[in-house]
Amino acid sequence: MKPPTAAQRRIIEAADPATGRLSGTEHQLTALVRARLAFRHPRPPHAYFLTPAGHRIRDEDTAPAPAPREPSPATASTGVFAARTGTETAPAGPEGPARAREVRSAWEGLVELRRMTNADGARDRPCAWERTHLVQAAALVLEASGRLPAAPGRDGYRVADTPQPEAVAVRDPAPDGLRACAAALERAGWQTSEHAGARAAGRYLLASPRRT
């Protein structure tokens, strides 16, 4: 496969980090499809998304020098979507219907990515992208389910990396918060187990993408 051109790399680098959705002219996007770096959604509005090969190129090109492990929040200034993990230190950005639409679109894109990249076309089982973006993927599941991330003055879920491979830690101190988070993740094809935190850290979930 020929390496992408500089112009194609710029389009790939600008893809939505959560869903891989692309922006560009029809000619540019069609060329990426021919190069097997993108696919066209079969339903209107027929958006274009990165294939696994496109994601690999994007990850290689955008891999930063050591940086915070958690994704940044979506901001109006960048227009880039990122699921909220509840660990953000920057302002969370707009709430309300606009955010709900962004989350719904990101989730629908992720389900379509599952269909396109899972060998059996399964929509109810996490795909390879989710297993390489664990924190962001789990946070998207929770936000799409209607759970609220932690914020100043508000309890909510927090998703963080763990030393364990393919596992994230989820905390939610709200009444029945862990139970609701576990139910949302399991509906989305994740497996969860509840554990007691060290000292006074409270209970938390270990969550990992189901493979079968």
Results as ranks from 00 to 15, higher is better:
2 K>D: 15
5 T>C: 09
8 Q>E: 11
9 R>N: 08
9 R>D: 12
10 R>Y: 11
11 I>P: 08
21 R>W: 08
22 L>A: 07
23 S>T: 15
36 R>H: 13
42 P>Y: 10
50 L>T: 06
50 L>Y: 00
53 A>T: 12
54 G>D: 06
59 D>H: 13
59 D>N: 14
60 E>M: 11
62 T>H: 05
64 P>Q: 07
67 A>C: 05
68 P>N: 15
70 E>S: 07
75 T>F: 13
78 T>I: 06
80 V>K: 11
81 F>D: 00
84 R>L: 10
86 G>N: 09
87 T>R: 08
88 E>C: 03
94 P>V: 12
96 G>D: 03
100 A>L: 11
104 R>A: 14
106 A>K: 02
107 W>D: 07
107 W>A: 11
108 E>V: 01
113 L>D: 08
126 P>F: 09
127 C>V: 05
132 T>E: 15
134 L>W: 02
134 L>A: 08
134 L>E: 03
136 Q>C: 05
137 A>M: 07
140 L>H: 04
141 V>W: 01
142 L>K: 04
152 P>F: 09
167 A>Q: 12
168 V>I: 09
169 A>L: 12
170 V>F: 03
171 R>Q: 10
174 A>K: 15
180 A>W: 10
182 A>T: 11
186 E>T: 13
193 S>N: 12
196 A>T: 14
197 G>D: 12
202 G>T: 04
203 R>I: 06
205 L>Q: 09
211 R>D: 02
211 R>L: 15
